[in-house]
Design a protein around this nucleic acid. Structure first.
Lengths: 344, 344
DNA sequence: AATATGGATGTTAGCGCTAACATGAATAGA
DNA sequence: TCTATTCATGTTAGCGCTAACATCCATATT
């Protein structure tokens, strides 16, 4: 071989895996044509496309998404920010998002704030750094710095769970009305002395909004609206303890309006264990509509929120925006449904 | 202004947001120095670092992770592949992974196969295309094409949940032994005619491994090991139906060994509803150790698997590998624990 | 035949960052 | 004093892809 080694200054470590250029050489086209086969196959002639596809298989090409994202300043990443992964509610929302986005070739970047607003801002910065195509975040309240970042961002954003004044798109339900609705049912059914019981209502302000709906209805009719709060996350066990605590501190209580179904279910199971009759001795209701609440005896009276639908609708709205299609309503109220069980 | 427009051939759309170069200009250093402040602050003099950090704040620089990943062929992405998001087990594993990785500045890319091996291969290709730093996948069985891809990949891989011959790292437990252990307890307690009941055991072969442990122990002692299977995913409701079905088709059964706690809990709740005494009329046990199983009356007898620990340990192993630290044991048996309740 | 039109493909120049090497100054060692 | 070593910083050349523009050719239009 008479190959003169050219000066060849240096070499990057290079993962030596085949690139677009390798495919292009194999298929005897230019690399942009291969790129088009991958991104807009309709714009390439059938015969060329088949040749390129064969070449892709032959050289074992794996697309480098990072390079594509850099060149196009767009990543097909969807940033998703939730306050907790321990709460099934968000898991179900994520499932709705995930299945819809996946079907359209988008990849979710999941971030968990643990109900810490400061964390949200950091996550937003990181996700912007990944050239995300859109962002889903939970709730309408953000730390000032974070809100500023979001406002300036040129890509679609949807704020989920809650309804109100949003930055861009908004999919959710009125927690205030949900709390009010439940309590209206309790009053209509004849319960008068009602205690609200929840956990971590500082961070989880949607539970507080439900409390406010509950409270306003009670005070409007001249009643008191006592509230009990615990600082540990909801669990079945804590629901049982909450029942004990309410019975002790509010012996005249006729009903407990729990902030979520986990607590309410825990309370029901605990009452059954102790032989406390529900709803005769104490009525119990929850919020969310979890399957477990409907599986226990007595069946839980609760408000069902369409968790998966929130995710699905949010994803559909974003995909429409990303693909330049018009979004009919920038705010979607998914509503809620009163599930009357046997516990209240 | 006497600005002569240079020929200026064309211009990319450019998101006009500040880049490293802008920060560098502001701080009067070269851009590589800014890069070092971001990636290895220890290698930059204190005073320089502070100047750069001030410049970053001043220009409102948001790091472009995509460009960094392309240049370094490494993304700080961890690909995570699970077979389902409907199953709490994987959610808890993901939590263990997430909290550990997040603390070290890695971002999870989540993929869901829905128990479809073909999907796994596609996800693996996509995740490789994102220059992931490591990969976590569920189980030891892969489609041949997928196994080939994994084998050739030069970065760390951990296969979780199950124990056996792994590609690289392995964190999990022996499902065969877990199934055997539960059934040994049932036999020791005096139950003889035991039915195994599970869902989707075709795709969910770990449930099948537990069945095999159960079956082998029974056949070793000269007994039969009947099995009932349903093709829909586990749910409380299905657990109740399963109880009905077993009582009808196996009237002499003394115990039901359920493949998971969701089914077992559903069966217990259904029995309580019907007034069937547990474990006197029929004993019930499960697998997983979910909180709900421990909250019901009678308390569920089950095998607890350390789900979150699997995620945490897998993440720790991968981080060690990525950072070049040695990994002591490439296989970690996280074990399991028999929880004796009142249902069997 | 000359021109317009549209569809398929090619050329060029980055996207914003970092690996690899280069340089220069400060300190240590002989 | 001179060289070796270390530390902090700079220069250069891509990483692999795609946007923007350019070209070419077949067909339609006059």
């Amino acid at each position: 071989m008479t190959d003169q080694q050219p000066p060849e200054r240096r070499r990057r470590k290079g993962l030596d895996s085949p690139t677009l250029t390798d495919v292009a050489r194999e298929a005897e086209v230019s690399s942009i044509t291969v790129s088009r086969v991958l991104n807009s196959p309709g714009s390439v002639r059938e015969s060329t496309r088949r040749r390129v596809e064969a070449a892709i298989d032959k050289v074992g090409y794996v697309r480098n998404m990072v390079a594509g994202s850099l060149a196009s300043a767009n990543s097909r990443f969807i940033a998703v920010i939730v306050p907790s992964l321990s709460n099934v509610v968000f898991i179900e929302v994520i499932q709705g998002l995930q299945s819809t986005f996946e079907a359209h070739g988008y990849q979710i970047l999941l971030g968990n704030t643990d109900y810490n607003m400061q964390r949200e801002r950091e996550l937003v910065k990181t996700f912007f750094g990944w050239s995300s195509s859109a962002l889903v975040t939970t709730g309408l309240r953000h730390e000032p710095g974070c809100a500023g970042l979001l406002q300036q961002w040129p890509k679609p954003i949807v704020e989920i769970m809650e309804l109100g004044e949003a930055i861009d798109l908004n999919v959710g339900l009125s927690h205030y009305q949900a709390g009010r609705r439940m309590t209206r049912y309790l009053l209509d059914t004849g319960y008068r002395r009602i205690v609200y019981a929840g956990t971590q209502m500082g961070g989880n302000y949607r539970a507080r909004l439900r409390y406010e709906g509950h409270r306003d209805l009670l005070t409007d009719t001249g009643r008191e609206a006592p509230m009990c709060e615990w600082e540990t996350p909801s669990s079945f066990e804590l629901g049982g303890q909450a029942l004990d605590s309410v019975l002790e501190h509010h012996p005249s209580a006729e009903a407990i309006h729990f902030a979520d179904d986990i607590l309410a279910t825990g309370a029901v199971l605990h009452a059954v264990r102790l032989g406390i009759r529900i709803p005769q001795e104490i009525a119990i209701c929850g919020f969310t509509g979890l399957p477990i609440g409907q599986a226990i005896t007595p069946r839980l009276t609760t408000i069902a929120s369409p968790r998966e639908a929130i995710g699905r609708i949010a994803a559909e709205q974003l995909i429409a925006r990303i693909e330049g299609r018009p979004v009919e309503h920038s705010q979607v109220d998914v509503g809620f449904e009163l599930l009357v069980g046997d516990s209240a």
